[in-house]
Design a protein around this nucleic acid. Structure first.
Lengths: 196, 196
DNA sequence: CTAATTGTTGACCTAGAGTTCAAGAAAGTG
DNA sequence: CACTTTCTTGAACTCTAGGTCAACAATTAG
């Protein structure tokens, strides 16, 4: 009972996420959020408590969407190396083709809030870990499929990929697409095929 | 003539740099800067114009110090690969051993101000480019010294190193030192020795 | 010493951030 | 319909960021 909400909380969270992503946490004001979501400032506070709380929800939303995208891109047909390269390229392309280059919300958060916000730090860490796991699993699958050499250390290569992605989100502010692609190729070179 | 300054502008800029580095641009207030430098707010504005102007000076200062450190670490005795690995490790160690993990000022700036501050963007880009050049030159030196295979693409490897460094500054918020070291090793693996 | 110049300091100002709240509106309950 | 509950809205509030300014201090030129 009671008056029903005039908005879908999930929609609002996603719009808030977009705003935080584009502008950064500190640079996003309650007024910005109200405008971006179409919901009054008061209602936002009523529904979500505080800017920081809404940001937590936004970060979770980002995590979910990112994970889905990662799984989707990695599980399409092809070798592990092909799929992983395509995955990284897709991230770079999304950044370069978007209206503004905004990097990765999780990484931005890590840098902006690191040291001052333990909860955000944990969330970011969890997101990174999850991606590493997915990539590691994909490399292991490649080993079973016979397109990755058995002596490749899947965990380390997965960490390197995750690290490369983090770096590229920064390098994307300034370097050419072809340069970034070269970095991607060099980065996945360690995911070697078996010797024939 | 006129009353002499009661502070060394370069000292103030360096302290301001430390503060911006630790807290981020937006989260650093004029009051913070006054406290960190020991110079009154009014004097800071009198001497440097605005917070943004002072930040520019701080970023230049960072660039200078970083470049000196890079050259120093790369030019010590050893093979190119050894030196580059030591260089990256030194950056990671500095981050992990410091009182707070604060990443790289240039990278933080790239993410925080990207898209909204063309001048900052250009500066960051210049800093990155400079580091890539130094690493590329060191790899080329390695080729002449015979510790790097002639067919290694020095430019691409240098870009990969720079990208790895950027990524590690983010991964350092959350991952273990040994994990980061493994990433470093995987990242410099492409700087191969000549076949004997 | 006086004047001109440059620095310093703390008070002051404006705008906006982040939040709260009182009044009213839309639903279900009996 | 009265009543409770939940939501909406806009005003209001407090606090700080970012910056300006007037008054005073320290220096040098002549």
């Amino acid at each position: 009972m009671g008056r029903p909400k005039t908005f879908e909380p999930d929609d609002v969270i996603e719009r808030a996420m977009q705003t935080f992503w584009t502008r950064g946490y500190a640079a996003t004001s309650p007024a910005d959020l109200a405008e971006a979501t179409g919901v009054g400032k008061g209602s936002l506070y009523h529904a979500f408590g505080s800017k920081r709380d809404l940001f937590s929800k936004a970060l979770e939303c980002y995590s979910r969407l990112g994970e889905e995208m990662t799984e989707d891109l990695l599980n399409r047909p092809g070798t592990a190396k092909e799929r992983i390269r395509a995955y990284i390229r897709a991230l770079v392309d999304a950044d370069l083709d978007g209206p503004v280059r905004r990097g990765c919300l999780a990484a931005n958060t890590a840098l902006e809030l690191a040291g001052r916000d333990p909860e955000a730090e944990r969330t970011v860490r969890r997101i990174a870990e999850r991606v590493v796991d997915l990539i590691e699993a994909r490399i292991e699958l490649g080993k079973r499929d016979g397109d990755v050499a058995a002596d490749v250390d899947a965990r380390v290569q997965a960490l390197l990929v995750q690290n490369t992605v983090s770096g590229l989100r920064i390098m994307a502010c300034g370097f050419e697409r072809s340069t970034l692609y070269a970095v991607i190729d060099a980065s996945v070179a360690g995911i070697r095929q078996p010797a024939v």
